[in-house]
Amino acid sequence: MNPVLVLGGGPAGLSAAAELASLGAPVLLVEKEEYWGGNPRRWHYSLLAPDLLPAEEVLNPLVSRVEGAPLIERHLRTTVSRVEPLSSGFRVELKGPETSGWREVSSVVLATGFDHFDSRRKYEYGYGRYPDVIDFKEFEGMIHDDRLTRPSDGALPKRIAWLLCVGSRDVQVGNPWCCRMGCAVSIKQAVEVRQKHPEIDTYVYYMDIRTYGLWEDLYWKSMNEYGVKFIRGRIGQITQAEGGKRLLATGEDTILSRPTEVPFDMIVLASGMEPGTGTKEAAQLFGLPVGPEGFLTPKLSDLNPVESGHPGIFLAGAATGPKAIPDAVTEGMGAALRAYKHARG
């Protein structure tokens, strides 16, 4: 049996690879970066929503399962540059430091994931110009490494705001979809800040709180256990106040129905999820359609969310839309099962 190609070594890809190996199928796991674990690893996520487990406790077992499986041939810093269909399966050309050249694979799992929205594109928030405007993916690393200081002057902030839906639900930047994670992750970050520094005031600016399903618990807890404050209404622009010493968040409090202007020491932007460049490349490479948002689209998103519709190509994780880790992991398992069936013929 030719190996199953798993493209992408994030939570979804790792899960698919481990599952395939446990079924006894050989796997070719290809990741373009130099580490395993995808976005959670790239940005050094701190605690994970909703259960506040350290990210390592989730990622490490996923990685070690893969590393301990002899059936998995792993390649970091490697990509697929060309694809040719075979009567059954595909010929793929790998490009990487350890391995290059054509390989035959029986089926393919695309787990190419997402990219964060680049907050520089919301010009009015001054991200990239004002050092204390921070993207929440960077903030994960800051909490993780216990570096809660302001980039501008190294002082401990007294007041931090989170702004949800940056680059999501917004036609101004062409992204009308919801990122699904921004609410929960921002609230989690505020909780983490309050755990470590109860003296820091934390505010979350929202238009809707979408801590869907059981994740709602986190939202409630953040208020009654940690004293995180919620303001309904968005910040529409960020400028500098007090001669550049603080940030000025201008918005509307839509419950008071009044415009507001509040100085903050730091503002964290919950940037959305966009189809990753790797996902877009994979779509082109394998000739798969993408939806109007640019994500890969399963043929039947209700009945079979892991099947691309093209024989032998399966989809998993954030490559098909914004998703949490448990969903990405589950889809990795589902895609593995289908890919295994296909490979077995």
């Binding site: 968005r234 918005g251 409090d253």
Partner: peptide, 23 residues
């Protein structure tokens, strides 16, 4: 409308009148 209030953010009239673009 998502009732986000961003329109009102920069509205000059909203600062002085009982008025807002969101409304």
């Amino acid at each position: 409308c998502l009732n986000c209030g961003e329109c009102t953010t920069g509205c000059p009239a909203a600062r002085f009148y009982d008025f807002s673009p969101r409304e």
